[in-house]
Write a protein that binds this DNA or RNA. Structure first.
Length: 279
DNA sequence: AAACAGGCCTAAA
DNA sequence: TTTAGGCCTGTT
């Protein structure tokens, strides 16, 4: 990978597996939107940014400092996803899924944002998840001016924890779950930074103690927020796909240390209607 | 209009 | 240990 300062953005070359559409539409994050040119704009890590691809290059708005200090890590730039795809293509189904999803990278998202977002995601569809999160940010986040428009950061856990109730964002029965999680994080009772340095079992156990956080949400937080790429969230799509492909006694360990990445390829593939002919 | 959406909780076998 | 219903709300 090489990168160069350009006007108001950084050009990155020599990166395989970076497709903005697949990264932002594969279901791992909720705060990026496509514009009429096919570029993606959103807010992450307290900053607004735009990402675009032109030819073999990726362009990320901001300066070299932003790239080196934030986006290089956020986009997991130093990991070889082509290698990971190769290791996951263990059968015809995974071959198809990894080809279909080539270009996906697992974003290294903010821990609290991941926790809060995936609590909201339960029993919801993606458009509504995005709307609820956007209202949450508009109501309690900080404003950012970017390209003549106003954007909002994801509110801190402390900010949410200070509220007596969370209404007006349409989160329904999840509101008390969010408040409770915010208070656990803000008080230090739940130390997400420490969990990121712990092991999977410790993290899972700690997250499951939260009301409104079950195995699926906890595994999403571990995968997308704690960057443990072996975590394998099982939602309805994944359940359908793996029971069809691997039967009832499936074990994510067949995918090895990157099982969570496999999960994302499968999710994106299955949700797009992907199947393969068997026999 | 009734059912459904990237689950989770509680109560009951 | 597994299973059924209920839960906010917007969309189809």
């Amino acid at each position: 990978m090489q990168y160069f300062r350009r006007e108001k953005e950084v050009e990155i070359t020599g990166v395989t597996d970076f497709d903005p559409e697949r990264i932002f539409e594969c279901g791992q994050c909720f705060r990026f939107n496509r514009d009429e040119r096919g570029d993606y704009t959103g807010v992450a890590m307290g900053r607004a940014l735009r990402v675009r691809r032109a030819g073999e290059s990726i362009y990320i708005s901001g300066g070299i400092d932003d790239f080196e200090n934030v986006w290089r890590d956020y986009f997991d730039m130093d990991r070889d996803y082509a290698d990971i795809r190769a290791s996951l293509a263990i059968d015809p189904y995974m071959e198809a899924a990894t080809v279909f999803g080539a270009g996906i990278r697992i974003l290294r998202q903010d821990r609290w944002e991941a926790l809060c977002s995936f609590i909201i995601s339960q029993c919801n569809n993606i458009p509504r998840i995005k709307k609820i999160i956007e209202r949450l940010c508009q109501s309690y986040g900080e404003t950012i001016e970017f390209d003549g428009k106003t954007y909002y950061t994801f509110p801190t856990a402390a900010r949410i924890a200070a509220l007596s109730a969370l209404d007006g964002i349409g989160s329904g029965y999840r509101a008390p779950y969010i408040l409770n999680a915010a208070r656990a994080v803000a008080s230090g009772e739940l130390d997400l930074a420490a969990l990121a340095c712990s092991d999977y079992d410790t993290a899972l156990k700690a997250l499951l103690r939260l009301n409104g956080v079950g195995k699926k949400v906890a595994n999403c937080v571990i995968l997308f927020g704690l960057q443990m790429l072996s975590a394998f969230p099982i939602d309805v799509w994944i359940k359908k796909a793996i029971s069809g492909q691997y039967g009832g006694d499936f074990d994510p360990e067949i995918f090895g240390e990157y099982a969570g990445v496999a999960q994302q390829y499968i999710f994106y593939f299955a949700r797009s209607g992907g199947t393969i002919q068997v026999g």
